[in-house]
Amino acid sequence: MSPLKETSQKDNKHLLLVDDDPNLILLVKDYLEFQGYEVTTAENGQEALDILSKQVPDMIICDVMMPEMDGYALIEKIRQDARISWVPVMFLSAKGQSQDRVKGLNTGADVYMVKPFEPEELVAQVESSLKQASRLMRHRSNISFDESTRIQVPSNVELTPTELKVVQLVAQGLSNRDIAEKLSVSQRTIESHVSNMLNKTNLHNRTELARWAIESNMA
Rank of each mutant, 00 (worst) to 15 (best):
F34R: 03
F34H: 02
F34V: 02
F34Y: 05
F34W: 03
Q35G: 06
Q35M: 07
Q35W: 03
Q35I: 00
Q35V: 00
G36W: 01
G36S: 03
G36A: 02
G36C: 02
G36F: 01
Y37L: 08
Y37F: 15
E38L: 05
V39L: 03
V39C: 05
T40I: 12
T40G: 05
T40R: 13
T41D: 12
A42D: 10
A42M: 14
E43R: 03
E43V: 07
E43W: 01
E43H: 02
N44R: 02
N44C: 06
N44I: 01
N44M: 02
N44A: 04
N44V: 03
N44L: 03
G45P: 05
G45E: 05
G45K: 14
Q46Y: 12
Q46D: 08
Q46E: 12
Q46W: 07
E47C: 09
E47D: 15
E47T: 13
A48D: 10
A48N: 11
A48I: 12
L49I: 13
L49M: 15
L49S: 10
L49T: 09
L49V: 09
D50T: 12
D50H: 12
D50L: 13
D50G: 05
I51A: 06
I51T: 07
I51F: 14
I51D: 04
I51C: 03
I51R: 01
L52W: 08
L52Q: 14
L52V: 14
S53V: 05
S53W: 06
S53E: 14
S53T: 11
K54Y: 01
K54H: 06
K54C: 06
K54S: 10
Q55E: 15
Q55P: 01
Q55K: 12
Q55A: 15
Q55H: 12
V56S: 14
V56T: 15
V56R: 13
V56L: 13
V56A: 15
P57V: 09
P57S: 08
P57D: 06
D58E: 11
D58M: 05
D58F: 03
M59T: 02
M59S: 09
M59L: 15
M59P: 00
M59I: 07
I60C: 05
I60D: 01
I60Q: 04
I61R: 02
I61F: 04
I61V: 15
I61W: 04
I61N: 05
I61Q: 05
C62K: 00
C62Q: 00
C62P: 01
D63A: 11
D63V: 04
D63G: 07
D63E: 11
D63I: 02
V64G: 00
V64E: 00
V64I: 15
M65I: 06
M65D: 08
M65Q: 10
M66I: 09
M66N: 08
M66W: 07
P67Q: 11
P67F: 10
P67R: 14
E68F: 06
E68V: 12
E68C: 04
E68K: 11
E68M: 06
M69F: 09
M69A: 11
D70A: 08
D70E: 06
D70H: 08
D70Q: 07
